[in-house]
Amino acid sequence: MRARVEVTLKAGIRDPQGHAIERAIANLGYEGVRNVRVGKLITLELTGPREVSERRITELCEKLLANPVVEDFAVLMDERERESPRAGEP
């Protein structure tokens, strides 16, 4: 199954990239656009039963994909996009 991991800076952490984009939007003449924040999107594919994959992906987020000191993460699992297993894999 495929998973999408969104990594975003925690609410209290300043985001200079988001701030620069917000200024650019204002310079383009658009009004009413606020709180622009930039994050990362990581997509990956997991094999195995859903509950194992879910556990694995949460563990990976905490260990590697996000730094819990400054970042939050959200995981979206999508079973529909599951690809056929490769030879030798369950």
Binding site: L9, I13, R14, D15, P16, Q17, A20, N67, V69, V70
Partner: peptide, 17 residues
Amino acid sequence: LTEMHLLPGALVRNAGL
């Protein structure tokens, strides 16, 4: 060292970019 949690906190993008 911060990623290893041998030191607290984190280092993020410079405020001025």
